[in-house]
Amino acid sequence: MPVISAVKDVDTLTMTFVAEFEATVEKVWQVWADPRKLERWWGPPTWPATFERFEFEPGGQVRYYMTGPDGTKARGWWTLTSVEAPHRLEFDDGFADENNEPVDPKDSTRGVVTLEDLGGRTRMTTVSTFTSAEQLERMAEMGMQEGMRQAQDQIDALLA
């Protein structure tokens, strides 16, 4: 199980996930940089993702949806703010409407992913920062903490 910790911190308005993989930083970076690989793990197993737009560069736009067991589509967007291959990725993240446009850009979260070389293994730290305690609690109630854990636990299969 790659996720070694998942911490919700109301004081810092963050959720932090730390996972370790038996793969190089460069190989783990590809699960973010390649949309077809990202589709195989972004979202819990029962909510697979489909990436329709994927501009993997600073300022780039990403649009995706996750399909639930009953066919419901939950749409999302990212705006990439920093891409420092293969060690760091930063993006704003939020909900999208049926046209794949942000529902409320002010209701976004900030995602920062760092990959650290552990001598041939990789530690991936993913931090989501929220705008308020209310937003953090709303996302926690929607199952974000368990969903992200389940999602990241699927990465090992991609690296095998």
Rank of each mutant, 00 (worst) to 15 (best):
M1W: 12
V3Q: 12
V3A: 04
I4V: 15
S5E: 15
A6Y: 04
V10P: 15
L13V: 06
T14N: 15
T14M: 14
T16W: 14
F17W: 15
V18S: 13
V18N: 05
A19K: 01
A19W: 00
A19G: 08
E20L: 00
E22K: 13
E26K: 06
K27D: 15
W29I: 04
V31N: 10
W32M: 05
W32Y: 12
D34Y: 04
D34T: 09
P35T: 06
P35W: 02
P35A: 07
K37W: 02
K37H: 03
E39G: 02
P44I: 00
P48M: 04
P48F: 03
A49Q: 00
A49W: 00
F51A: 04
E52P: 00
R53W: 00
R53G: 00
F54R: 00
F56Q: 07
G60I: 01
Q61I: 05
R63T: 10
R63N: 08
R63F: 03
R63Q: 11
Y64T: 02
Y64G: 04
Y65N: 04
M66E: 00
T67R: 10
P69G: 07
P69Q: 09
D70M: 02
T72D: 03
R75Q: 03
G76N: 08
W77P: 11
W77G: 10
W78G: 01
T79I: 12
T79F: 04
V83P: 08
A85S: 09
A85Y: 01
P86N: 10
R88C: 08
R88N: 05
E90K: 09
D92L: 13
F95I: 11
F95W: 12
F95S: 10
A96I: 09
A96S: 14
A96Q: 09
E98M: 09
N99L: 11
E101W: 11
V103S: 09
K106Y: 10
K106L: 11
D107A: 15
S108L: 02
R110C: 11
V112Q: 11
T114W: 06
T114S: 12
E116T: 15
G119W: 05
G120P: 12
G120C: 13
R123Y: 09
T126S: 13
S128F: 13
S132F: 01
A133V: 15
A133T: 14
L136T: 09
E137L: 10
A140P: 01
Q145C: 05
E146M: 13
G147I: 01
M148G: 12
M148C: 11
R149Y: 05
A151E: 06
A151L: 06
A151V: 05
Q152S: 06
Q152D: 07
D153H: 06
I155V: 14
I155Y: 02
L158R: 05
